[in-house]
């Protein structure tokens, strides 16, 4: 749950994750947790919080260097649909121990703002954005 950038106010990520995300990463291996933390530093292009904080990452699985990231989107028509997947791909593929990254988009459960933690909502409110 810790992140190296937790204290930088302007940075994204920082472990302010909701119960939903915590449940999702509960059975992660130490290596998968490292990958979760890396994704927790990728910003949502629209909002100054990370993809993990947004509750968009549902699962990260690493088996013998093959990483599968399960994610969803708040809006199906997201204009940054490919861009976000590319960000995850390029961020994880440069990591030691990762040979291959597969980003899989899923819709179950359907995203809702209940997946955001209170500190994340507060951070968004401070930026003039609320969901």
């Amino acid at each position: 749950m810790s992140s190296a950038r937790a204290n930088a106010a302007e940075s994204v990520g920082g472990g302010q994750i909701s119960e939903f995300v915590e449940r999702r990463r509960a059975d992660a291996t130490p290596f998968e947790r490292e990958l979760w933390d890396m994704i927790d530093e990728i910003p949502d292009p629209h909002i100054p919080v990370s993809l993990v904080e947004m509750g968009m990452i549902y699962d990260v699985e690493a088996i013998d260097g093959r990483v599968t990231v399960e994610m969803t989107y708040p809006c199906m028509g997201c204009p940054a649909y490919d861009m976000i997947q590319n960000d995850i791909n390029s961020c994880l593929s440069l990591t030691d121990g990762v040979d291959d990254v597969d980003v899989e988009v899923v819709w179950d459960p359907v995203w809702s703002k209940d997946m955001l933690s209170e500190p994340v909502r507060e951070k968004m409110r401070k930026s003039g954005i609320s969901l």
Binding site: C75, M76, G77, C78, Y81, V105, W107
Partner: peptide
């Protein structure tokens, strides 16, 4: 939104 649906 329709384009988003078509993509899926």
């Amino acid at each position: 939104e329709e384009i988003g649906h078509v993509r899926q």
